[in-house]
Design a protein around this nucleic acid. Structure first.
Length: 386
DNA sequence: AAGCAACCCAACCGCCGTTTC
DNA sequence: TGAAACGGCGGTTGGGTTGCT
């Protein structure tokens, strides 16, 4: 049974012949494709419009990049997939010249197998149960999750430290290490949905729906601190907190001398640079963010703090940053139930079962994904052999 | 050389959201 | 306002290719 648009006409199926390609290419080049359903008729093809569209998008489009995926592209796919899952169209948007179909095929034929070979679940990027025992870590890194440990970097002293932490000042055990690539941009809070609305593009039509915070959300503290969430950036090579934000109050602080006009992170590999880039972005958007937070929205929203704030609050560095806690990329486990990992995507973005919805383009523009700089957290630890 | 299995990837299928009438 | 048309997406299929026995 074909698509309804095909059922009304006799259409050819299967592989496209060079002649058909020629016809379609010539027609689209000359006339464009304002209406796909009219394309086959006008181009003299015995195909349905949908088939023509697919052929054009996946094969004939002149800006397509053919050939094998580069290592950088692989890393980008992995990074974005780790956050979005099988949203191939979204992933493909980060790979110029690649189609969603191509990315999907590449994932299924190559990357997926690599992850499995690494003992990682390709869906969640977590360790597969059978592999967990093989990946236990030292006392310096309490994570027994290899995927999670990807985000710990050695500071050269044998101490692995998370490049970024989020913690609740009222629930110190719920400290989470979050890699920069996992961070949401400072977004807007939707008080009604008790979730985070990502993205501040001028194109508001592309705002994705807020992801509701689920009950049990570890930072959704209804009783204390309005569920405030401390977020601290620190250099991987020192314990210095470089960046801090207080979105509730629309303020932010940074210990760096970053030129805010520059805004985005440089192409360097150092988290410091990335962090500073984010700091600049947050700096510029924090006020806007704060202005839309409802008094009781999401328990008050996210608060990002820094050392001075911690000290003012009587919190020590360790209480806020704390020892690196294990992290789970996706798994759906509720916090506080004896699970040793925490689902970052759900904790930061909302329900574990919900699709993580946020504006990837914005994230990219913020430098959230910096695989373009030739470096990507965690992926370096995988062995890429194909 | 033949048979088989595994793999790759182009294309299809079915669903969903949006637009048009 | 509802139905149809359309565009887009993710999942799946099946034919061609490659590698192994």
């Amino acid at each position: 049974m074909g698509h309804h648009c095909c059922s009304k006409q006799k259409v050819k199926r299967g592989l496209w012949s060079p002649e058909e390609d020629e016809k379609l290419l010539r027609y689209i080049t000359a006339n464009g494709h304002s209406c796909w359903s009219a394309v086959p008729k006008n181009a003299g093809l015995q195909r349905c419009g949908k088939s023509c569209r697919l052929r054009w998008i996946n094969y004939l489009r002149p800006d397509l990049k053919r050939g094998t995926f580069s290592e950088q592209e692989e890393r980008t796919i992995l990074d974005v997939h780790r956050i979005l899952g099988n949203r191939w169209a979204q992933i493909a948007k980060h790979l110029p010249g690649r189609t969603d179909n191509e990315v999907k095929n590449f994932w299924n034929s190559c990357i997926k197998k690599k992850l499995i070979a690494q003992g990682l679940d390709p869906k969640t990027h977590n360790l597969l149960p059978a592999s967990k025992n093989l990946h236990s870590h030292s006392a310096n890194n309490p994570s027994n999750n290899h995927a999670a440990s990807q985000f710990y970097s050695s500071n050269g002293n044998g101490n692995d430290t998370p490049p970024f932490t989020i913690s609740s000042p009222t629930k110190s055990p719920a400290t989470v290490a979050v890699p920069p690539s996992m961070l949401p941009p400072p977004g807007l809070y939707d008080g009604a949905n008790r979730g985070m609305v990502m993205g501040q593009h001028e194109d508001h039509a592309h705002h994705h729906a807020a992801v509701p915070m689920q009950q049990g959300y570890p930072y959704d503290d209804h009783n204390n601190n309005n569920g405030a969430l401390l977020m601290s950036f620190r250099d991987r090579n020192s314990a210095t907190v470089h960046v801090s934000m207080d979105f509730m109050n629309g303020s932010s602080n940074s210990s760096s001398s970053i030129d805010h006009a520059a805004g985005m992170p440089s192409a360097g590999n150092d988290f410091n640079q990335q962090g500073m880039g984010m700091a600049a972005f947050m700096h510029e958007t924090a006020a806007m963010w704060a202005t839309v937070i409802e008094p009781d929205g999401m328990g008050g929203g996210i608060e990002m703090s820094h050392q001075q704030q911690q000290q003012r609050q009587g919190l020590g560095q360790d209480e806020v940053v704390g020892p690196p806690a294990p992290m789970m990329m996706n798994g759906g486990a509720e916090a506080g139930k004896g699970v040793d990992m925490m689902d970052v995507s759900s904790a930061v973005y909302g329900s574990a079962g919900a699709t993580t919805a946020f504006d990837l383009e914005l994230m990219e523009s913020c430098g959230m994904f910096y695989s373009g700089a030739g470096h990507s957290i965690g992926i370096d630890q995988l062995q890429w052999d194909c």
